[in-house]
């Protein structure tokens, strides 16, 4: 019954997404835990609501069901449609941080390249170990980069974008939580190296933690997000050619 109602009313998905994401941000502000990532919390609440009310995912995503069987587009897809222009705009923070690259170009680019290759290679080896198929393997290749780029890479390589996004969010949360311990364990103490390590391994969610280490770490981490994303786009297409 609720499904039939939602199917006949516009703006259900936009409304639900907007409200739940705002609520999730309020929850994080209140408790300040990286585990309460707003995207994660909002999605869990919405998934639970859709399962309980038995409302069709397509109505949530695409909007009101019209008489001709198409949807009116007033669902969560409206936000999703902003993804390409937003990825384009990632050039803006990258452009503003380019000056940091001039100080230690070899260390920054070398570090990011090493991290990107290490990430892709370890995904390859572990995928072989777990006996994943090619679709599952390419789904995980872009797991350490920013969601916008990673989702596009997964699509282009024939992966499962939704699973890629889940893995990326998990990566960010893990990076955010363990970065202090990992940097200490491996004696990574130079602020530039710390920032590059966090940004390359755990994108924007990790960068939120890098901010607490210091200004240099935050800027380096932010710069690394875009650079590592671009390197991954190129290198992942070669790794995707490997069949096992």
């Amino acid at each position: 019954m609720l499904n039939e109602m939602a199917a006949n009313i516009s703006f259900f998905g936009i409304f639900l997404t907007g409200v739940m994401y705002t609520l999730a941000i309020a929850i994080q502000k209140r408790f300040k835990s990286p585990l309460l990532n707003p995207l994660l919390v909002a999605c869990i609440i919405i998934i639970a609501l859709l399962l309980i009310t038995d409302i069709d995912y397509n109505i949530f995503l695409y909007g009101k069901l019209k008489a001709d069987g198409s949807y009116d587009g007033t669902g969560a897809v409206m936000f999703q449609n902003l993804l390409t222009p937003t990825t384009v705009c990632l050039a803006i923070p990258l452009y503003e941080k380019l000056r940091y690259l001039k100080k230690y170009p070899a260390a920054i680019l070398g570090g990011i390249l090493a991290g990107t290759v290490a990430c892709l290679t370890s995904v390859l080896l572990l995928s072989m170990l777990f006996g994943l198929d090619h679709t599952q393997y390419v789904t995980l290749l872009p797991k350490s980069i920013t969601t916008a780029i990673g989702m596009g890479v997964s699509e282009e390589l024939g992966g499962m974008p939704a699973v890629t996004v889940a893995s990326i969010v998990l990566t960010g949360i893990i990076g955010n939580v363990i970065s202090g311990g990992v940097l200490k364990l491996f004696h990574i103490s130079h602020p530039v190296a710390q920032g590059v390590a966090i940004g390359t391994s755990s994108h924007a969610i990790g960068t939120a933690r890098a901010r607490e280490f210091g200004e240099v770490q935050e800027a380096m981490s932010g710069l690394s997000i875009a650079v590592c994303g671009l390197m991954t786009v190129v290198l992942a297409s070669f790794y995707a050619m490997i069949h096992f």
């Binding site: 998905g13 707003p38 995207l39 999605c43 919405i46 949530f60 995503l61 669902g75 916008a148 996004v165």
Partner: peptide
């Protein structure tokens, strides 16, 4: 981040 709600809920 709000732009990823649709795909993640798609899980």
């Amino acid at each position: 981040p709000v732009m990823f709600v649709g795909p993640v809920v798609g899980l």
